[in-house]
């Protein structure tokens, strides 16, 4: 636990030190006692055992002391945790979307970023949203984690006091590319953050040189499952898709040939289970009807036409 980069770190690490300290004491004492007894009372040295009677006082003592100690541990765990649930009024609010298998952060002015860029020394509140399965937003350097649950509005907050870049990992198993669902928190000095926030071009991505259709694909994490280079991930690759002839399984489980035209692409995005390419699993992709507008759909199609 090298990096210590949020206001929660002290409370959490204190709980760790208290619990691990007490634990280590008991581990060493009990192990030492076992080893000592095994040597001291070895049958060769001590052929006749002592007759030791039960001792109620001792039983009470070693019930009471652990009870007090675990209550103490509970207490440290609790006070280190309380501030995590007490979100300051006026915290900067960012919508954090976790989907299979990427993160996206949306700011109050509509700005979107694949990295979580925040100002130093200011409380930040994350509203967690998942359109598909469970994820968990985990920042080890901040000692925080909260599950991203579809259909539930979970929130978390933090305040970082140290500029720098820290890992964001997905901690709740979410399928094939769970281990690659990574991002970073970039903690910037306040002025730099404001500059970044108001800049129209996201300096952390290559947005300015990328075709608009590709931006839409990236924003919706399409390319986590559909590669751009012909390789098979979870779904079929986008490369060479446009205009090709495809073997698909329709809703009735029948195999049919279709041509990858506008209609096909629209159906695949809005009703993904109607025509599933042979060799891929039904039910893995959800409908993007709410997420992708007609305009964006047109932009995607324009981009796919270029991806030969």
């Amino acid at each position: 636990m090298e990096a210590k980069a949020s206001t929660f770190v002290q409370g959490v690490d204190t709980a760790f030190i208290v619990i691990l300290g007490i634990s280590l004491f008991f581990l060493i004492t009990i192990t030492a006692a076992m080893i000592y007894f095994v040597i001291r009372y070895n049958r060769k040295k001590n052929p006749k055992p002592k007759d030791v009677k039960d001792n109620t006082r001792l039983e009470i003592l070693w019930t009471a002391i652990p009870t007090i100690l675990v209550l103490l541990m509970f207490w440290y765990g609790w006070i280190g945790y309380t501030p995590m649930r007490r979100i300051p009024a006026g915290a900067l609010t960012i919508k954090a979307t976790g989907r299979m298998w990427s993160w996206n952060f949306e700011y109050e002015n509509g700005k979107q970023s694949e990295y979580l860029v925040v100002p130093v020394g200011k409380p930040v509140k994350l509203e967690l949203y998942s359109p598909d399965v469970l994820h968990s937003l985990y920042i080890p350097a901040f000692r925080i984690k909260e599950d991203v649950v579809p259909g539930v509005n979970n929130v978390m907050w933090f305040q970082s006091d140290k500029p720098g870049e820290y890992d964001i990992l997905c901690a709740e198993y979410c399928g094939l590319r769970h281990a690659y669902m990574l991002s970073k928190v970039i903690v910037k000095p306040v002025e730099e953050y404001i500059q970044w926030y108001h800049a129209t071009v996201d300096s952390n991505s290559m947005a300015d040189v990328e075709p608009i259709g590709l931006q839409v694909l990236k924003k919706n994490a399409c390319i986590s499952c559909h590669s751009l280079d012909g390789s098979k991930i979870v779904g079929p690759s986008f490369k060479g898709l446009w205009g090709s002839e495809r073997d698909v399984i329709d809703e009735n489980g029948k195999r049919v040939k279709v041509n990858a035209d506008e209609n096909y692409i629209q159906t695949s995005i809005y009703e993904p289970n109607q025509q599933v390419v042979e060799g891929f699993n039904k039910g893995l992709m959800i409908s993007y009807k709410e997420a992708i507008t007609d305009e964006e759909l047109r932009q995607i199609i324009e981009y796919l036409k270029t991806l030969k």
Partner: peptide, 26 residues
């Protein structure tokens, strides 16, 4: 006894709210 002690004592870390938030699902 030795291994269960380690297992049980690390369980206390999981039981403490502040510590669990960090090590949960790790």
């Amino acid at each position: 006894i030795f291994l269960f002690l380690i297992g049980g004592l690390t369980g206390l870390v999981n039981g403490a709210l502040a510590a669990d938030v960090h090590i949960h699902d790790t």
